[in-house]
């Protein structure tokens, strides 16, 4: 499999295709799951310890439910790959990362150099979110001010 330039992880990619949430919950040995807009991602929480890849699909850019799905999983302690697929646009990337996505497979390709610019557009945040632990976003501006 070709290297995904919009994958921000060092570990090996999961080697099996992602299955639907329903199928995943029925297959005790599956490790990759695909979340559609409207799926209740909280159903996945009890099974998180065997998940290596969660793909969250964005059918259209204006359907933002995938953002919530992502941060719910991160807040529940999920540390595996979280991949945004579908109508993923350049100006959404930084917010997606802040919600916990660490890999992107947009329907329309995004230039990695432009993605890099988008990620670095705003170095400071008012509030931490499901940010990558090593990113400057993980420390909100008030912590820097009142350290």
């Amino acid at each position: 499999m070709a290297e995904n330039p919009l994958r921000f992880r060092d570990d090996q990619q999961a080697d099996e295709p992602a299955v639907s949430l329903g199928a995943f919950l029925e297959q005790a040995n599956a490790n990759s799951v695909r979340i559609e807009a409207g799926d209740d991602v909280r159903l996945l929480i009890p099974a998180l310890d065997r998940v290596r890849l969660v793909e969250i699909d964005f059918p259209r850019f204006r359907d933002g439910r995938g953002f919530s799905s992502a941060r719910i999983l991160r807040e529940a302690g999920y540390t595996g790959e979280l991949k945004a697929t579908g109508d993923v646009l350049l100006d959404l990337l930084a917010f997606m990362r802040r919600c916990g996505f660490d890999s992107f497979a947009p329907d329309s390709p995004i230039d990695p150099a432009e993605a890099e610019l988008a990620f670095n557009r705003y170095p400071h945040v008012y509030q931490h979110a499901a940010d990558p632990p090593d990113s400057p976003w993980a420390v909100p501006i008030w912590k820097l001010r009142h350290a």
Binding site: Y126, Q127, H128, W142, R145, H146
Partner: peptide
């Protein structure tokens, strides 16, 4: 529980 609240010092600022 996520600790997103800012401290009093920021409020005062």
């Amino acid at each position: 529980t996520l600790g997103t609240d800012f401290p009093q010092a920021e409020y005062d600022r």
